[in-house]
């Protein structure tokens, strides 16, 4: 791989890691788009590198969110039972399916993520701790509003089922599943968006790891491309966590929604053979 490509991976990794950590997505989707559309890597190779990116983003971002108590560890562990199960099944399926199918699935995931970002309400209805399950109660200090936010997730069964689907999608598409998990936690389970992003960010690493070993043993990782990917994502994720606690996520989410729609259209065109490079 030439020096220009390596530097471009590093720089885009910083951008993707920052947005990924801020929104709890891990940055995997953005990295896949970059690898396929800009560097023209085969889909399976792009997916393998993006899984490493998600693990790096999740580990770096997760370490900061845990320290800030934004991550709900117990909720994450309960939902992980479903996401990892789905991820392993999905990753096996993805290796059997052709690249074309993976690109179409990616396109669908990207459109779904964009739709959910636009659908996010500006104000949040938080369920107080006494109204739901005590097993996974959560609370954190919001640095923007300067107050403690106490909440309890609701609709746990629906959340678990959705987590299973999110895990399967992440296994097939090679992403951490954050694009599905953040909207589910926030819109369905009524977890505040910052806690949802922090918890999702924590979870996506495990989901990605479940799929990553399958891609690693399959020989899809380019080690020289992996270095700038991991370093860039790591730096960006740290910056993203510092920004997230100080800003409202709604504006950034909608901006990312626009970018994802554009990338999704391009990806469908490429899968359909209307674009090639």
């Amino acid at each position: 791989m030439d020096p220009f490509s390596l530097i471009s991976i590093l720089l885009f990794g910083i951008f993707a890691g920052c947005l990924g950590a801020m929104l709890g997505l891990g940055g995997g989707v953005l990295m896949i788009i970059f690898f396929i559309l800009v560097l023209n890597l085969p889909a399976h190779q792009a997916v393998a590198l993006s899984l490493l990116a998600v693990i790096a983003s999740s580990s770096m971002g997760g370490s900061v969110y845990l320290k800030d108590k934004i991550t709900n560890v117990k909720l994450a562990m309960v939902l992980e039972t479903c996401t990892v199960t789905g991820a392993v099944a999905g990753a096996i399926l993805a290796l059997i399916l052709p690249s074309l199918f993976t690109e179409i699935v990616l396109g669908i995931v990207i459109f779904f993520a964009a739709f959910m970002m636009f659908k996010s309400p500006r104000s949040e209805k938080i369920v107080p701790p006494e109204a739901g399950s005590r097993l996974v109660l959560g609370g954190f200090y919001d640095a923007l509003t300067k107050c403690d936010v106490l909440y309890t997730p609701v609709r746990m069964r629906l959340g678990l089922f959705a987590s299973l689907l999110a895990g399967s999608i992440s296994g097939i598409a090679g992403i951490g599943g954050g694009v599905v998990m953040v909207p589910i936690m926030n819109l369905v389970m009524k977890v505040p968006i910052k806690a949802a992003a922090g918890t999702s960010n924590f979870m996506v690493g495990v989901t990605a790891a479940a799929s990553a070993f399958i891609y690693l043993t399959g020989g899809f990782v380019d080690p020289y491309a992996a270095v700038p990917t991991v370093l860039g994502i790591m730096l960006g994720a740290y910056a993203g966590t510092r920004i997230m606690v100080r800003v409202e996520s709604i504006t950034i989410k909608r901006l990312l929604g626009v970018v994802l729609i554009l990338f999704g259209i391009i990806l469908f065109f490429k899968a359909g053979g209307l674009l090639s490079w």
Partner: peptide
């Protein structure tokens, strides 16, 4: 050493679950 780094990275979430 790059491969060692990749393996350490991939094992980190697994170790996190064990420690948890």
């Amino acid at each position: 050493l790059i491969w060692a780094g990749i393996v350490v990275l991939a094992l980190t979430p697994l170790l996190r679950v064990v420690i948890a």
